[in-house]
Design a protein around this nucleic acid. Structure first.
Lengths: 213, 213
DNA sequence: TAGATTGTTAATCGATTAACAATC
DNA sequence: TAGATTGTTAATCGATTAACAATC
């Protein structure tokens, strides 16, 4: 069905809405108006209403939005109402950091396998998951129908691994390598380019010092 | 001087230009036209020319752009032609990952201190840098005129630490905590919200499966 | 000089904000 | 019913793309 395509600008804001709604829910708040949410989140009430309306009406005139309902709906839109299977490729510090970040697990992102090129690590464990040689990735992904590969390897390896992962049916790559992956359109890629982020910070330090603004 | 404000959309693209230009430079390529760069980077030539022209003319009609010159100019714009001092706050896996990522060091981002709440870590080292109690942050930042604090602590700590850091004159916070920091406008913040990123990935998996697009 | 390609203006497109009618 | 607040259309703003004159 040709539902109208939602812009990535809107999608990019959903996790933040989700986070604030989670907080409100925890604080026992039942309803909220776009104006109140606007005050808390520092975005316009208009944008909030437009964003939510991309997915159909979640609110009620004269009342506002039911926090729990809205929270649940956003979780469905984001696809985090279901479990997702992950494999870790690269068991370095970054891989460890991700494996140990319990919030992902709580949200249903479950690490089912871990792989590294370093033989010394094979057989050792990262958060209860055994580290295997990268040669075993393909068979593992096919057998477990793994959805997401977390790529925390140097960039020269990343390109080859991405091609291989695409071939064995991975659905998505969460890419921490500092390179743009070229994969078929049935493989979703989300990049986390930490050095890009740090450079933006550097720019803004610079800019503030020059412009005083 | 009221130079016209450059949009964050443009800034966000600079690190990627920088990366590609670095590659070209390494491959010994001296000049490149906006069209050639467009082919490699998969953005329009028009956008490339517009982006660069925000900062004045870097090219030459009939010739194109000199790779090395352009590379250097972008590094100046991003402020990565100078050294930047960092402190690590939170010496967990993520902090370790960042400390061990040698590329940052190579780019002039130097970690000068590390702090953690856990007394067991005090006195131990993370990449040659001694881990200190967080009570010492304030004095350290003032003494070393530290520019950037890398915040890799749980979110409840992050809010308080951000306020403290702002007070003792930090210029910027690279925030990995899953919370929006509220700091004065003289403190630059760059957020790395990993779970937001993962949720976007989840959305796109979902979307592709539904729409087949 | 002729050809190539930038710098820059104009046109288009998309995203955000404002306004208000619909309705709970 | 009156008041509140959404859903949605219209207006504005900004970013991207196209076009072309300037110029190397």
């Amino acid at each position: 069905m040709a539902e109208k395509e939602i812009s990535q600008a809107v999608i990019g804001r959903l996790p933040r809405y989700f986070r604030y709604l989670g907080d409100l829910k925890e604080r026992g708040i039942e309803r909220i108006s776009s104006q109140e949410l606007s005050d808390i989140m520092k975005v316009t009430a208009s944008q909030i209403r437009q964003d939510f309306n991309n997915f159909g009406g979640f609110g009620q005139q004269g009342y506002g939005y039911n926090v729990e309902y809205l929270y649940d709906e956003i979780s469905k839109i984001l696809g985090i109402d279901k479990q997702h299977s992950l494999i870790l490729i690269g068991a370095g510090h970054l891989g460890q950091a991700i494996a140990n970040y319990t919030n992902f697990n709580k949200r249903g992102f479950v690490i089912e396998g871990a792989f590294d090129i370093n033989p010394a690590l094979h057989g050792t464990k990262i958060k209860e998951v055994e580290i295997r040689p990268i040669e075993e990735i393909s068979a593992f992904v096919k057998e477990h129908k793994t959805e997401i590969a977390v790529l925390t390897v140097p960039k020269d390896q990343a390109t080859k691994l991405a091609a291989m992962l695409s071939e064995c049916g991975i659905k998505a790559i969460w890419n921490f390598a500092h390179v743009d992956l070229d994969v078929p359109e049935n493989v979703q890629v989300e990049n986390v380019h930490l050095s890009d982020s740090l450079m933006k910070l550097s720019y803004n330090i610079n800019r503030y010092e020059k412009e005083g603004k």
